[in-house]
Computed example of a mutant assay.
Amino acid sequence: MSDPWTDAWAEAEASCPVSALIFETIELQHPAFLQDGIVIPLRFVLDVEPRTFGIEDGALFDAGEMVEFTPIAFEADMPTFSEGQLPQCRVRVDNVARELMPYLEAAVLVRADMKVLHRQYREDDLSEPAYGPVEYMLRAVKVSGSTVEGTASFADLTNWKFPSRVYTRKEFTSLASA
């Protein structure tokens, strides 16, 4: 997988009007995050008040809908890219609310990877992400007091099939039959 923070991303970031705020968000997904028996995502915005943002079409949860993100303090480094290693970064969530701890405790009991989706929204268009989502797998999670910290990396690239797109006659009618 190539570096998602390309020159095009840097140009788009630099061309954002100074008057438009950028909202950083993360979404946590895990099969143990249940509410009334239904799997839910946990969505957070780096802000001091709740914000409502649009979720992109094709998302696993609430595709095409406007949903509320909970304000929480978090930080996520830009992924490091080095030869022979999967890109990874550190994700830290501070002041984890009492409402979040039961979800994290439930996640410990279910053997599954936790997905982290990073999105950026521009204040002048909250209907869909201006950038993202970029999906990571969160591993090596540590809880210390009210802080949760882990290492996020892209999914195991060595196990992805290549090419990842399946070309079918239904989609590409000019393909010859075998």
Rank of each mutant, 00 (worst) to 15 (best):
P50H: 02
R98C: 14
A20P: 09
P17Y: 02
T158R: 15
N159Y: 15
Q29I: 13
R169W: 07
A59K: 05
N159I: 14
V93P: 10
L126V: 07
P50E: 02
L109T: 05
T6F: 01
I40F: 04
L100Q: 11
P87W: 12
D77C: 05
A130Y: 10
I22P: 03
E149F: 14
E149M: 15
A112L: 01
C16W: 03
R139D: 15
Q88F: 15
L138W: 01
P4F: 03
D124A: 12
A32G: 07
R43S: 01
E105G: 08
P102F: 08
P41L: 02
T52Q: 13
L175Q: 00
F53A: 00
E49H: 09
E149W: 13
E128D: 05
D57R: 13
Q85I: 14
F162Q: 11
V134C: 02
R119K: 12
E123N: 12
F162S: 11
W5G: 05
F172L: 13
Y136T: 00
M137S: 04
V67H: 09
P17A: 01
V93L: 15
P41W: 03
S174W: 12
M114Y: 05
F162R: 13
T52A: 05
F44I: 10
D62V: 10
H30Q: 03
A107I: 06
T168K: 02
P129G: 01
A176I: 14
V108K: 09
V39W: 08
S2V: 09
F81L: 14
K170G: 13
A63R: 10
K170I: 06
I22R: 04
T52W: 11
P17Q: 03
T168Q: 04
V148S: 08
M137G: 01
R51Q: 08
D94M: 08
T147A: 10
P87A: 07
L21D: 12
A178G: 12
W5A: 04
Q120T: 09
D62R: 10
Y136K: 00
E105N: 12
S19N: 07
P41S: 06
D125L: 08
L21C: 08
L109G: 03
M78S: 14
I55G: 11
G145C: 10
E56D: 09
A112N: 02
I40P: 11
F61S: 11
G37V: 05
G37A: 08
L60S: 15
A12R: 07
D7V: 10
E13R: 13
V148K: 09
E135N: 00
Y121L: 05
V18K: 02
V143E: 07
E65H: 03
W9C: 04
L46C: 01
T52H: 07
G84E: 15
L60P: 14
D77M: 06
F69A: 02
T168P: 04
T70N: 02
L157I: 14
R92I: 14
D57H: 13
S19V: 13
H30F: 05
R111W: 00
W160N: 12
E135C: 00
K170D: 12
I38C: 14
I22W: 04
P163S: 11
V91R: 07
A32C: 10
T70E: 05
Q88R: 13
E99R: 11
K115C: 11
S174P: 03
E68V: 12
A20G: 06
L104A: 01
L138E: 01
Y136I: 00
A130R: 06
T52P: 05
E123Y: 12
L117E: 14
